[in-house]
Design a protein around this nucleic acid. Structure first.
Lengths: 229, 229
DNA sequence: AGGTAAATGGACCAGATAGTCCATCCCGAT
DNA sequence: ATCGGGATGGACTATCTGGTCCATTTACCT
């Protein structure tokens, strides 16, 4: 049985180093392509250290799932804080698209990608990833709720449903982006989610056209996309 | 080097049997959890047969990716044929949700799931999966185009964008369904996509409320979901 | 300082796995 | 029938990988 949490500062450092190395390798080569020997080598650690802090391979991958979830969610914290305005929503979406562009559409969403590799194999890992998605969706929902509290959303609008929808669009868009190696797939999907939110704005808050195309550039309420190439 | 296509009927049969066995095992245990010995055992074949028809493991997995793509797309053919009406769209979405319910939300989309496991590892497999998604999206787009041709969609509506959006919603919804073990996630995501299509209907074709909630049951144009439990 | 628990080094093992090899068998064409 | 190539059987190997073990060192507390 492995130690729960390291007792010393040095121990915590080693544990973290191992998780980080494992997460990097998993991102590069996938779960299956990552061996414990590889992890040890990159972390400058020995097998005994790895098994001192983790029960087995699955336990390590669970820790990786948690670390990845934390990184994805925490990494968007500043953007999440501004999700209570249309501009903030656009900024968040832009950031996601730009990130995919810089990554050349490789890898997809770290959480979504791990899901396909771990969800059916290890229940604990599945729950870690579900927790990450929950925190993500919660951030979106709370932003929309703040908009609603300011009266900017139609009273009949459901921030929870809109947030769920937006997260699904992000995940689906990221998957299409990964498989097609085309960041535009994410942009288009998020565009659709944004239009759903725009359609739920309170009447009179801003004028907009009802039957607008989802992607037409002549649509003021459409999502023009980031300008980075 | 492996034979391209088997020369005899018996050979074709064997090759197919191997692919089917591999696809089944991959669906059950994932790519990483499937060994070639397992595949041989289930296919009642020997190693020499496997290596007679495939170059190596990656080559086999590429064939699996193609077979899975075909199965997913061909398996929806009858539903695809009716995607040119709102009722047909609903029927297709219902079928997807019901399928997830019967599978207890396990596995997600076969194509999407394979994507996370193969896309970054093997370019050929990625292309096979991309092709499957393309055929899927094409089916949706052509349905919407038939609606547009009948004048049931707003002239400004973009069937291509709506189809892309719908596919992204399906994939995102399937991923959320898998991670959260909740088929409702798919229903909600498809609901959003359907609302986008409903919003693009030609004016006057049917009355509908503009600022409707995405999931409210009091919304006649919303997507009530299948009644199966 | 000294003792105790935590942390580390690294050899070692058993099982699994991808891939090889060659002898044999089957079947259709001549 | 027979002959040649495709199809098959299945043993074999080299390597990799998860996991174990124990001796040794280091860090923390009193």
């Amino acid at each position: 049985m492995a130690i729960g949490q390291p007792a010393t500062a040095k121990g915590r450092e080693t544990r973290e180093r191992i998780i980080r190395a494992a997460a990097e390798l998993v991102a590069e080569r996938g779960v299956a392509g990552t061996s414990l020997d590889d992890v040890c080598a990159r972390a400058h650690a020995s097998k005994s250290q790895l098994y001192h802090y983790f029960d087995d391979r699955d336990d390590l991958m669970r820790a990786v799932a948690r670390a990845v979830s934390d990184e994805v969610v925490d990494g968007q914290a500043e953007l999440f804080a501004r999700l209570d305005t249309i501009g903030g929503l656009r900024a968040w979406m832009d950031a996601l698209v730009i990130l995919q562009q810089t990554r050349q559409a490789k890898g997809g969403c770290p959480i979504g990608s791990l899901a396909g590799q771990l969800a059916e194999h290890d229940e604990g890992a599945r729950l870690e990833l579900a927790d990450g998605l929950d925190r993500w969706e919660t951030a979106i929902r709370e932003g929309l709720e703040r908009m609603a509290a300011r009266g900017e959303l139609d009273p009949g609008a459901d921030p929870g449903a809109l947030a769920q929808n937006t997260l699904a669009a992000a995940q689906g868009g990221l998957l299409l982006t990964q498989v097609r190696r085309d960041p535009d797939q994410l942009r288009a999907a998020l565009n659709g989610a944004l239009n759903a939110i725009l359609g739920a704005r309170a009447e009179g808050s801003t004028t907009f056209r009802i039957h607008s195309s989802l992607s037409g550039d002549d649509n003021n309420d459409g999502y023009p996309g980031p300008t980075v190439t």
